[in-house]
């Protein structure tokens, strides 16, 4: 052993997702069965949102890693993205930037 940590080999899967839009935000629901909050990694780099979730499930002797990326538009307020997990579903809340929200204008 040279002291380096051996890289874990995963069986990679693309999680299915639902995207629901509301006036002030969008909700993204990823199915990541067998994953707990501590095993989920979410990052935004150069407007690319990437989620990675390690599962307790295995395929072909390797643990499953759910991984998927999306390109975000400028309308997303990246600093206020929130994430929760429940029953194997990762829920991302993507708030819209102020400028992207629909404003109703009253006609006088």
């Amino acid at each position: 052993m040279n002291g380096q940590k051996e890289k874990k080999v995963y069986s990679e899967r693309i999680p299915v997702a639902d995207i629901v839009e509301e006036n002030d935000k969008a909700m993204v629901y990823f199915e990541v069965p067998g994953s707990k909050a501590g095993n989920v990694n979410i990052e935004v780099k150069n407007s690319i949102l990437t989620i990675e979730a390690e599962s307790c499930l295995e395929r072909h002797g390797k643990p499953i890693l759910y991984k998927r990326s999306f390109e975000l538009s400028d309308a997303v307020d990246v600093d206020n993205i929130k994430a929760t997990t429940k029953d194997g579903v990762l829920v991302l809340t993507l708030p819209k930037a102020e400028s992207a929200q629909i404003k109703k204008i009253a006609v006088e």
Binding site: E21, A26, F70, E71, S73, K96, A100
Partner: peptide
């Protein structure tokens, strides 16, 4: 995917 998502990475 509307205005928020333009495309995913693997189709």
């Amino acid at each position: 995917m509307g205005f928020l998502m333009r495309r995913n990475d693997r189709g």
